[in-house]
Amino acid sequence: MAASQARPWTARQIGFFKPLLFIVCLYPVMRWLWLGFQGALTANPPEFLIRSSGIWALVALCLTLAVTPLRRCLGQPALLRCRRMLGLFTFFYSALHVLGWAYWERGLSLSAMWDDIVQRPFIAIGVLAMVPMLAQAVTSTRGWMSRLGARWHTLHRAIYPVAILSVWHFWLIRAGKNDFAEVYAYGAVLGLLLLARLVPLEGRRGNRP
């Protein structure tokens, strides 16, 4: 394995690191609450919260997809123990993003939501990205893992198309203002993280597709 010289982290060390990471992942929520109590959620709080949750969903997605390349680069296989939590945070911020749209944009009316989905490609693509994520969140438990067996991996590999759909969704929103700087930044990071999976592992070259 690459960088196998590094001393692998023990379960205890990961057990210490994980709660810290959990608190770091809650930073956006704490910031929203703080800004909310300060009355500082801009003049248009719904718009701010919908956009902010969307951006943090992308950040969480980047972190989730960074686990595998990081494990290899750092030679720390135990990092895998953080991946489910990061994946669930990706789902959490994505779900808040969707709920924000449903509540503030569509007034929680199912027919209004449906109209938006069928009339507007960027909404449809966003919802499409949400479908596999929902299934992944539900099947993230050990029970579901063993029940689904090999199919679990297939289902959870759908995070790659989810990443592509998410950037596409983001691109379509920003297309109106021709303002793509952030879209390209997230697209580049996610693209690199996906490409990193294609790099064969040193010494195991023969085993990788």
């Binding site: 709080p45 109209d115 109106g176």
Partner: peptide, 16 residues
């Protein structure tokens, strides 16, 4: 609008 409905609007300052 191609990317959103114009049927309703959000009044700025009306509260979260």
């Amino acid at each position: 609008h191609p990317r959103w409905s114009q049927a309703t609007e959000r009044r700025i300052g009306a509260g979260v």
